[in-house]
Design a protein around this nucleic acid. Structure first.
Lengths: 207, 207
DNA sequence: GCCTTTCGCTACGCCTCGTAGCGTAACGCC
DNA sequence: GGCGTTACGCTACGAGGCGTAGCGAAAGGC
């Protein structure tokens, strides 16, 4: 999330936090207007009102800049208690779909993932800033469902189940929205959730 | 799939089919070596032994070229009858995962999908050349499972079910392999298939 | 008030893009 | 076999982005 992890000198002129915010905001604006492929570092610098060199002092490449600019959007995802596991899943699926509808996430997410297949540090950055960060939703949802008695306790659950569920939910929604390019409407959400819950129930029945 | 659909004049020197094949092969080789972002049209032309202008006469952009170069790889997917729906699903999931392990598909697939979010014709090209084309696997698998009595007949199945299943399978595997960047090993395949089948069984029990 | 670091700015070499123009090569048709 | 048509290889070009270097000025810590 932060442009320079920690090891920054204590002396000298400090980096402008204002510039950081302006750059990330400008990056998102540029993504909306231009999309990933036509976004240029010079353009972002111009929008943010900073010099291009300032930009390169903080982010080594367009990839890392965009990851940071988009990552914060995913933190908007929430999991309010809707009373049942079904409602909780449907709610988060709808939220995630809405997030993927936004042009800046739509055009950036797949692009940085594509780049990450050839760039291990970038993949790690994505994993830490976005993927692992949002698994909290699965953990919270399961914890709540267990409290309600809708799912068996953790002791009876195989390790890696949360990862599996996360891949299924996020993967299906992304594929529906960006690859199939068809709407994630109420009907689809209902049916997908029913499918997933049916699978979870079956798994709970016979470990 | 074909570079120029059909409306090509009958007179004059015909386009070299040899060049077509060489270009697509060179594109795949370049994807393996350089990845998506560093692949250039000039480089592909050089590898294929053709002039850069020849390349532009057939494909308007790098995006369309790569879609055509990669699309044929997906046709390798097969669905041999493995005796049960479980085995059929596990088999195709393994095949799909193996395909996504190949560097040329790994780096290209996400990239062209990212581009397609801002390029309607490209999205359509992907849909026709790859996505819709591979739904045949779902249709065939369901048909077979119905013949075995493992699934109810089509009449009792809601429309769009095949699309849902396709999004779940393809989405989950892609997400596991490229986003989570963890191996699609035998254990994961087994558990994912069990989850999906449990969901299908539940859906069949109560329409 | 000095030292250190960042800042904005300008300029640069390098590369890729996509196109234009040329002469030549390969085919269908008569 | 000749003619018309189209594709081909080649060269060259302007446009534009990349990433870096070097400068003087500004903004903090001590």
């Amino acid at each position: 999330m932060c442009s320079a992890p920690i090891p920054r000198s204590r002396t000298g002129r400090p980096r402008s936090a204002r510039a950081d915010a302006a750059i990330l905001e400008a990056t998102r604006a540029a993504l909306v207007e231009l999309g990933w492929s036509k976004l240029t570092m010079g353009d972002v610098a111009g929008r943010a009102g900073v010099a291009k060199t300032t930009l390169y002092r903080r982010w080594a490449s367009k990839n890392e800049l965009v990851v940071d600019a988009v990552a914060v959007l995913f933190d908007e995802l929430e999991l309010p208690d809707r009373g049942s596991l079904t409602a909780d899943i449907e709610g988060v699926v709808r939220q995630f779909a809405a997030l993927l509808e936004r042009p800046e996430t739509k055009t950036a997410l797949m692009a940085v993932i594509a780049e990450s297949t050839r760039d291990e540090p970038l993949r790690e950055r994505i994993r830490v800033s976005i993927v692992e960060r949002q698994k909290r939703l699965v953990l919270e949802g399961r914890r709540r469902a267990q409290a309600r008695g809708e799912l068996p306790t953790t002791s009876g659950t195989a390790p890696g189940t949360d990862d599996l569920i996360f891949d299924v939910i996020a993967g299906a929604v992304v594929h529906r929205a960006l690859v199939s390019a068809e709407p994630v409407d109420a009907e689809w959400v209902r049916r997908f959730t029913a499918l997933l819950l049916g699978g979870l129930a079956a798994a709970a029945a016979q470990p």
